[in-house]
Nucleic acid binder design. Structure first.
Lengths: 232, 232
DNA sequence: ATGATACTAGTACAGTGTACGAGTCGGCGC
DNA sequence: GCGCCGACTCGTACACTGTACTAGTATCAT
């Protein structure tokens, strides 16, 4: 089996000589690295979605040969895993310090989570089947910490964390997938009407045309938080 | 542009002559049809997951040429759409009639939904970005009907439906994606420990080793239903 | 016989992920 | 100097993908 590289790419140069290498590349690309690959992958995903990213196109964008990526990365799956986890990471918002109410904290954390994913809609469709990276784990830890400090008993903590996670993920995935197909939803609502009387309720409430996603998300979240507060 | 076929495959023969066609196929395959294609696709998805299904392999399994499928189906996406919607359809459980409490009805409907998807784990990863077929719409209608009859005001109905949907979908997708990677979760929990003190809460509650998925699902659902009942 | 309709399927093309192996480069021990 | 080694790059090749195009057949109505 080939050498490949075991684990740590982190630092690649030990000589601090900052002189730009004067090779035949005239002021060209910075050297390939896992970070640069992932960052470029995120850019491409944002711009063209999952279908637009192939190893060859990604390498082109990096000014490298397709196979060169495989030195820094195991395979395409890993690129996507890393891209997803990077996007899901929690970037500390403002200084902590001031201890707000726990409900506000949880709501803020979760709404930020949702907003972050919606800013990169491909992340929602990538979520299933992808492993837990440090970004996700960091967020879960934050959530658990807030709940725990708010007085949720350890015995109930896991259920609380998962319930909130489930709700946020479901809402986000739903929103992201329907966002791209607004026309489809209108068409579906139309079809409901022509389909006769088989869906009276959906037709009456115009479920598929109600696009107050943010408000709906808030309402459901409030219901969940109410319930958690009640049995705390 | 080619003729293709506009819409309705439904019935292909009008002569009721039931004599098996005595062509060169000796008692071989039944004729190709959209239904048969979708049914076989579901079988293959169950057996080998999303990655195992290609148009060529699907056609092989049907005893047909790859391109023959395209007469009955627009493209591969549509095959997956149809497979998903078929799996998500609600098959009426027992006779209605006896009007149980609405909470029990909702819980039953949603748990059946979740169970059905988990029986076909690929459905969870297919959900994002797929359109609303009649199967899904049927279930949403049922859910809306129960809630409406239970007294939820029309103004709150959409939010209630979506909240429950979100929760169920999030829980199912999470469950399905982590199910296949139990080893990964153990590894992740392990990593938490070695990662030092950065995830004290998750480590303490052993979040990633708690695999009482069904119980957790029930608890969160109860919280939601409590909340809905309260503001009814 | 003629033609239309419904359907099947071979060939071909552009694109995919990635295994393999050859090649380049800089630094180290001699 | 020389040899060597490890880090890194990348061209070629292979098996495979979805599907456009086209030619073909089998059945029917006229």
């Amino acid at each position: 089996m080939a050498a490949k590289r075991g684990d740590g790419p982190k630092k690649q140069s030990k000589q601090t000589n900052a002189a730009p290498q004067p090779a035949q590349e005239q002021a060209g690309e910075p050297p390939l690295s896992r970070e640069r690959i992932v960052a470029t992958a995120v850019e491409m995903l944002d711009a063209e979605g999952t279908a637009g990213v192939s190893m060859r196109r990604l390498a082109d964008r990096l000014g490298a040969g397709a196979m060169s990526l495989y030195w820094h990365v195991d395979n395409k799956e890993q690129v996507l895993d890393l891209a997803l986890d990077q996007v899901l990471e929690y970037r500390a918002p403002q200084q902590a310090g001031e201890p707000r109410d726990w409900r506000g904290d949880v709501a803020h954390l979760l709404e930020d989570w949702r907003a972050g994913m919606l800013r990169h809609p491909w992340s929602a469709s990538l979520l299933p089947r992808r492993a837990l990276g440090p970004g996700i784990l960091g967020r879960l830890e934050l959530l658990g910490g807030i709940l725990s400090r708010a007085g949720v008993a350890d015995a109930d903590l896991n259920a609380a964390i998962w319930s909130l996670w489930n709700y946020v993920m479901g809402a986000t995935i739903t929103r992201a997938s329907f966002d791209l197909t607004d026309a489809d939803m209108a068409a579906a609502q139309q079809r409901l009407s022509t389909l006769g009387e088989r869906h009276p309720t959906l037709e009456r409430t115009r479920l598929l045309l109600d696009n107050d996603w943010d408000g709906t998300f808030r309402k459901g979240l409030d219901v969940l938080l109410d319930g958690l507060a009640a049995r705390k």
